[in-house]
């Protein structure tokens, strides 16, 4: 446990001091403030546009931080050989991987929370429009939940990216695989519909079973589904998070297996 926490702490410090991380944070904050201009293009729905655009921006920048961080996490250590001085110590390879993962996730979550705080400031910048928006949206309850669920998505995506960084031959191919999973994860409901229309009976069950290997990020898309009438997301938040933890754990197990076989 101590080893995991030590490695996690160092990973977090490394991320925060990395210039790329700061650039991403800066651009994210800029986009959020610039969303005020975009909002001005939709009078009557200014706050809605700022709200939606901001949430998407927070997720995109969280994704960039997570994917670039995860893909380079181990690859860069191997290339720069900093990993030698870790693995020659009495540290379990699994603990090392887990520690790196935890550190990165904390860095990603910190990015998203920081951007969320800026986003809130931008949203409440125009008090009257915000009051009107509050009539339609239970903002103070739903917003933290949306951010928490977006972080859940990043949790899963980081684990996927880490696996592909160990599996693929280069960081570019790892990036491509991860983004493909990200996109596929948002079409989970479409896929389910296609399976139901194309297959029947046992075949449908089997194909559904296989399709469940792909993540379903729509469960975590509270920023899009909270406006459903009779929104029932609150009921399954805990279960969705457990699904996310199980999914991340699956890819961490695969990563751990691959990493245990890796030679340096």
């Amino acid at each position: 446990m101590k080893a995991i926490l030590s490695i996690a702490k160092i990973t977090l410090i490394e991320q925060i001091r990395n210039r790329l991380y700061l650039v991403i944070l800066f651009f994210g904050a800029t986009i959020l403030v610039a969303s005020l201009l975009v909002g001005a293009l939709a009078p009557g729905y200014r706050v809605r546009v700022i709200f939606d655009l901001g949430l998407v921006a927070i997720e995109i920048f969280g994704l960039i931080t997570a994917v670039f961080g995860a893909v380079n996490l181990v690859l860069q250590e191997v290339e720069t050989k900093t990993i030698y001085l870790i693995l020659t110590r009495p540290v379990n390879r699994m603990s090392y991987l887990f520690g790196r993962f935890v550190g990165l996730i904390v860095a990603v979550a910190a990015t998203m929370v920081f951007m969320a705080l800026i986003h809130i400031l931008v949203i409440v910048f125009r008090p009257y429009q915000f009051q009107v928006f509050l009539e339609r949206v239970d903002f103070w309850h739903i917003y933290p939940l949306i951010i928490a669920m977006s972080i859940g998505k990043m949790f899963m995506t980081t684990a996927i990216a880490l696996f592909f960084s160990l599996f693929a031959t280069s960081s570019v191919s790892a990036l491509i695989f991860t983004v493909s999973f990200w996109v596929a994860g948002h079409f989970g409901t479409e896929l389910a519909f296609l399976i139901d229309t194309s297959f029947k009976g046992v075949a449908a069950i089997l194909v559904h079973f296989i399709s469940w290997i792909l993540p379903n990020f729509q469960y975590f898309n509270f920023r899009d589904i909270f406006s459903f009438p009779n929104f029932s997301g609150y009921q399954y938040v805990g279960k969705a998070w457990m699904y996310g933890v199980g999914y991340a754990s699956f890819f961490l197990a695969l990563s751990s297996f691959l990493f245990s076989k890796k030679e340096f």
């Binding site: 699994m94 029932s232 399954y236 699904y243 999914y247 197990a253 695969l254 751990s256």
Partner: peptide
Amino acid sequence: TTQVSFIWLVLSLGVIFFFRWQVEALFR
């Protein structure tokens, strides 16, 4: 290590399928 990874994989799969099934029942 291989044994541990395998057990971990199987348990994770179990968690995935169980909770996905649970969420599917509530998600519309």
